[in-house]
Design a protein around this nucleic acid. Structure first.
Length: 527
RNA sequence: GCCCCCAUCGUCUAGAGGCCCAGGACACGGCCCUUUCAAGGCCGCGGCGGGGAUUCGAAUUCCCCUGGGGGCACCA
């Protein structure tokens, strides 16, 4: 058996962002190429200029890079089979179309688009197949010349109906046979001279010597249109592998109304590329009955098209988040500090730098309480920032405390803001359940006294001192510690208290408690 | 309307005639640990869409039904 070198491709159209479905298709292609020592080719399908979106290519490329899917040929890297933008390959399509026309495998269609649409609608109404009836295929040379001389615009249609056998073997689905009704004479070149997808994809895949076409199930019904073109052109046909689609929670095709679908959006939320790749790879593929965590090299080693599932998969954010948490926990302190830095840069303000971040929450700062949001934003932008090196130092210290508590990098903001600013919000529950409780002042006062005694202010020392409180005050440990937590972090839920205090340091810890105490005192003595 | 694909726990899946009164993971519930929340450990809940047929025996093969998805464009 002659083994030609594997060449696969991912061919997005620049109409927006890299969709997770597309990302998974790219992953499967990439894994397949790497596993077989073949080439992964990136091609931009931008023949429909009207649908091209500014900047979309850059976004797609950077998302692919972020996922770690380097391409061997394509934009920015070149290759021997270029150009890799369809918009730059028009001469190839034109040439091929001419060939098809002169061999009578294609013909000119003079039907006006409007007319076609009318016929289509009527056919649908009458329950007939809506496809083109092939009428222009029967035009005589004479008729054609007449129309041509009148400069009547025409499109080129592929004479598809003359091909009988429309069956092929799919690497995932097995034998698939289409009836001839599935295909009618479709347009390969529009009247404006631009080629259409089903035509360009064959020309490109053939010329780029693609050996395996791995793409979504939505292309399954395009395949019987494409196979005859290979035949008509005398090109060898690649292997086809149609992978199932990714659906949203409600079982319909995954789209924006199901939430984020852009890889870029997941990146911003704080998902790690390893988790994305692992999760997406497993969405529709499995290795055995127990393994769920795969490193990239394991995926390259173990991936196989044969084990790709036939049925569509529903995108499960919960599982992705769980998996992301797993990968976050595997990161070293240093790595995590780098990853987390962008998320806290904006909240790390020099003391008193900003005020009032979210409505409905009280703040320790001298809250006037009537600033508009834009005032606040302006203030936050203008506020002096903590130097990055200092942020990182703190970050390194708190990472052991937050690592196993976040599933997405962005969650660090909510979890650890109080380490980086004195302007942390006092959450409603923290206020009502603990700080406004009868015993709050007594607890905080006692805490202050205890902490003043601390020498090293290590978490061990802090714990030893504060552990005396329950007995001395005759209160439950939970209430005492929750009250302290509320005062120092503004939250009812936070990283471990004693360690948090130790990292904050004696001065800040004492100041915060004293400040809350004074606020409570004011409230108590108020009019 | 026509064509194509698909069908195991809520979700992703293992299962290629007896190993399965169906295994794993996420989610969910409980317990343990514990100053909160996590993480971790243990336990639990939960499924072969329906009907025929083949067979000594079917989640696994075949047929029908039903359900879901995709397509039928001068979109890709």
């Amino acid at each position: 058996m002659v083994r030609t070198k594997v060449r696969v491709r991912f061919a997005p159209s620049p109409t927006g962002y890299l969709h997770v479905g597309g990302a998974r298709t790219a992953i499967y292609n990439w894994l397949f190429a790497r596993q077989h020592g073949g080439k992964f080719i990136l091609r931009i399908e931008d023949t429909d200029i009207s649908r091209n979106v500014e900047g979309a290519i850059d976004t797609i490329l950077s998302s692919l890079r972020w996922l770690g899917l380097e391409w061997d040929e394509g934009p920015q890297v070149g290759g021997d089979y270029g150009p890799y933008f369809q918009s730059q390959r028009t001469y190839l399509y034109a040439e091929t179309a001419r060939k098809l026309l002169s061999a009578d495998r294609a013909y000119r269609c003079f039907c006006a688009p409007k007319k076609l649409e009318e016929r289509r609608q009527q056919a649908l109404r009458e329950g007939r197949p809506p496809g083109y009836d092939g009428r222009c295929g029967d035009l005589t040379q004479n008729q054609i010349h007449k129309l041509l001389s009148r400069e009547k615009p025409f499109a080129l249609r592929f004479r598809a109906t003359s091909f009988g056998d429309l069956s092929f073997r799919d690497l995932i689905h097995g034998e698939i046979a289409f009836k001839k009704e599935a295909v009618n004479d479709f347009i390969i070149v529009r009247s404006d001279g631009t080629p259409t997808y089903n035509f360009t994809v064959v020309v490109d895949d053939a010329l780029m010597q693609i050996t395996h076409v791995i793409r979504g199930d939505d292309h399954l019904s395009n395949t019987p249109k494409q196979i005859p073109i290979y035949k008509a052109l005398g090109y060898p046909r690649p292997e086809f592998a149609h992978i199932p689609l990714i659906l949203g929670k409600d079982g319909s095709r995954l789209s924006k109304r199901h939430g984020a679908t852009a890889v870029e959006a997941f990146r911003e939320e704080g998902f790690l590329p390893q988790a994305m790749v692992n999760y997406l790879a497993l969405l529709g593929w499995s290795y055995d009955d127990r393994t769920t965590l795969f490193s990239v090299s394991e995926l390259i080693d173990k991936f196989s098209l044969e084990k790709v599932s036939k049925n569509p998969a529903i995108f499960d954010l919960d599982k992705l988040e769980w998996m992301n948490g797993v990968y976050i926990r595997e990161k070293s302190d240093q790595e995590l500090a780098e990853l987390l830095l962008p998320y806290i840069r904006d909240i790390a303000l020099v003391d008193g730098g900003g005020e009032g971040r979210e409505e409905g929450e009280e703040h320790l700062g001298s809250a006037t309480g009537n600033e508009t949001l834009s005032d606040t934003q302006t203030k936050n932008i203008l506020a002096p920032r903590v130097p990055e090196a200092e942020i990182k130092r703190t970050l390194l210290k708190i990472i052991p405390l937050v690592r196993e508590r976040i599933k997405k990098l962005s969650e660090v903001q909510q979890m650890a803001d109080f380490f980086f600013t004195e302007d942390y919000p006092l959450e409603k529950d923290a206020m009502q359940k603990f700080l406004k409780a009868r015993e709050a002042r007594k607890i905080l006062q006692a805490t202050l006294e205890k902490l003043r005694l601390a020498q090293t202010f290590s978490s061990e020392e802090i714990e030893e001192l504060l552990r005396q409180l329950p007995d001395e005050l005759g209160l439950k440990a939970k209430q005492i510690f929750q009250t302290i937590r509320a005062a120092v972090t503004g939250k009812t839920v936070s990283p471990p208290l004693f360690q948090s205090l130790a990292i904050l340091g004696k001065e800040k810890s004492l100041n915060r408690i004293a400040k809350v105490l004074s606020i409570l005192e004011e409230g108590a003595e108020g009019p």
